[in-house]
Every structure is written in C-alpha cells, then in structure tokens.
C-alpha cells in the first residue's frame, strides 16, 4: 500500500472508521487493490496485477482517478474504493473514469465515510466502460453524519458491452442520509445484463432523489432496476425509474417500493417505459404506502407487536 507522506494519520483514521462500521479488516492487506481518498487528496493507493490506477488532484479541488483493468484479468479479492472527509465543512468533488477490459471479473466495494462532518457537499461522477463478456459488481455503502448536513450527489454513466454482466448495490440504510441524489444511467449492448438495486432509509427531514435509467440498446440485452426507500418522519423521497427497449428481445423490469411511516412524509415514484422495437418487453412494479397489512398481521399472529413486526419487515427490505 502506498500511503502518501504526511497523510498517514488521515489514512489510519479513515481505515479505523471503516473497520468499525463494517467489521472488514481487509483494507490494509497488500493483496487487496485499494483507493483511499480523504477530502481532496488521494492518501492511499494499492494496485494488483492487471489493474492500473492513476490519480490527479487539481488546484480547484477536483480529484480525478482513472482505473483501467486489462483484458482477461480476474481479480479474486474485491477492489476497495474508500472516500472520506474528516474536516467539519467543505466540498469533495471526485471524478472516476473506469475502463474495464474484456473477459474481466472484478468486484468493487465502495464506502463513503462522511461521519464527522457538519456540512459537506460530496459530488462523485463516474464513467465506466465494461468490455465484452466481463462480470463486474459494484457495491456502494454510505455512512453519513447523524446531523443531516451531508449532501451526496453520485452520478454514474455506463456502457456495458456485448455479453457482459453488471450488478450494482447502493445502500444508505445504517446512518442518517441528509440529502442524496443518485443517478445511474446505463447503456446495454447485445446480450449484456444489468441488475441495479438501491436501498435508502430516510429519517427526520432527509431528502432523497433516485434516478435509474436502463437503455436496452442491444439485441437480447436485459436489465432490472429496483429501488426501495423507507421514508419516516419528514422525509421527502422521489424515485424515477426509466427503461428504454430499443432492440429486439430486449427485456427490462423496473421496480420501486416506497414504504412510509408517519403523516409528514412526502414520497413519489415515476416509472417511464419506452419501447422502440416491437420485440422488446418492459415491465414495472411500484408501490407507495405503509407497511403491508398482511405482512404485519402474519408476524403479529406469531406474537410480535406491531412495532416489532414493522421493524422486522423493514430490516429485511433494507438488508
């Protein structure tokens, strides 16, 4: 692991917070590819065979990170992307550019540690190209400060080439959201598959915006985009799921479940399906409302109180 001189303390602090929140001790391991960013500085980098990481910090505070994975590379241990902010206030702007070759197998684990801030704007823009017949998974978990002063914007654009599979999980369920805006826009070529899942737990006056777009441009491409939001207190949540069936035998499914608790919650969902080829097939499911009564009564008939039953159901949905 290359730790930038003078930033050892920040590196240690971020790793400690991560380990405390996840019980995962693998970040320091030399066999694990890792990118650790603190504020507007890349403080730790570790690469593995077949993977190349370059970073650049601009004077205006923008951090640019290029990740390239060679064709036919299999990375058996997840690649860790850890972004944190240890000052009380500020702005963190990150630009990731991924080029993933053909026949690659890799799993990314991203963690965003923003637990010590009062007011922060965290902006992360990512472009990812996945070559042919590759298998890529991306898990993004956020830990925010309980004061609600974090504003996270994460914009991802992707192109998935022929025969490849991509799955993404975005979770912000363990800590307060603050304000979050998640955008995922994915183009799928022939025989490509994508599986997107977002789960967010809104508390107090959190603001949640999710937009997931599947562009099924290749023949026989398929994708699922599923969002689950548990909105409590005065949470304001808006989810947009879009799917475009532009090629023969393209199949897309979008699903949004927003569970509300309390009378001051404001939630909405907007599905958009557009078919441009008569052999494409798109479906959607959406539900907005309180916890399903039959599920509640099923558990209450086993002795749980209504509160316990609701917690049990929500924990499952957000797990």
């Amino acid at each position: 692991m290359d730790i930038v001189k003078g930033y050892e303390k920040e590196f240690e602090e971020l790793v400690e917070i991560y380990e405390k929140n996840t019980n995962d001790k693998s970040l320091r391991s030399p066999g694990v590819a890792t990118i650790i960013v603190s504020g507007n500085k890349v403080v730790g980098l570790n690469s593995v065979k077949g993977m190349h990481i370059k970073s650049k910090e601009r004077a205006d505070g923008l951090v640019m990170i290029d990740v390239e994975i060679e064709d036919n590379t299999i990375i058996p241990i997840p690649v860790h992307l850890c972004t944190g902010f240890l000052k009380k206030r500020g702005e963190q702007i990150l630009k990731f550019n991924y080029i993933i070759g053909s026949n690659v197998k890799v799993k990314f684990k991203s963690h965003c540690i923003l637990t010590k801030v009062e007011k922060l704007h965290h902006y992360m823009e990512s472009d990812m190209y996945i070559g042919k017949n590759s298998f890529v998974t991306y898990e993004d978990e956020h830990f925010h400060d309980e004061g609600g002063g974090v504003f996270v914007e994460t914009i991802t654009r992707m192109k998935i080439d022929e025969g490849s599979f991509f799955s993404s999980k975005f979770y912000e369920t363990k800590t307060r959201v603050g304000r979050i805006n998640v955008v995922m826009d994915i183009e799928l070529l022939k025989d490509a598959k994508a599986d997107l899942e977002s789960k967010i737990y809104g508390r107090e006056d959190d603001i949640i915006d999710i937009k997931e777009v599947l562009r099924l441009n290749g023949e026989n491409s398929s994708g699922i985009a599923k969002s689950t939001v548990f909105a409590t207190d005065r949470t304001n949540a808006h989810v947009v799921n879009e799917a475009y069936g532009n090629a023969p035998y393209a199949r897309g499914h979008i699903e949004c479940n927003e569970i509300v608790k309390g009378n001051s919650v404001e939630v909405s969902t907007l599905p958009l399906l557009k078919v441009m080829n008569d052999k494409a097939e798109l479906t959607h499911e959406a539900s907005v409302g309180r916890i399903n009564q039959v599920q509640l009564e099923t558990l209450m008939a086993k002795g749980l109180t209504e509160e316990e039953a609701a917690e049990f159901i929500v924990n499952g949905l957000l797990s």
Binding site: I313, G316, L317, L318, S319
Partner: peptide, 11 residues
Amino acid sequence: LWQEPARFDGI
C-alpha cells in the same frame, strides 16, 4: 397457518 402466507423480501 395461513392459506396463502405473505412473502418477505430480504428475510
């Protein structure tokens, strides 16, 4: 024992 038991995601 419910005739058609409910389903639970994630459990």
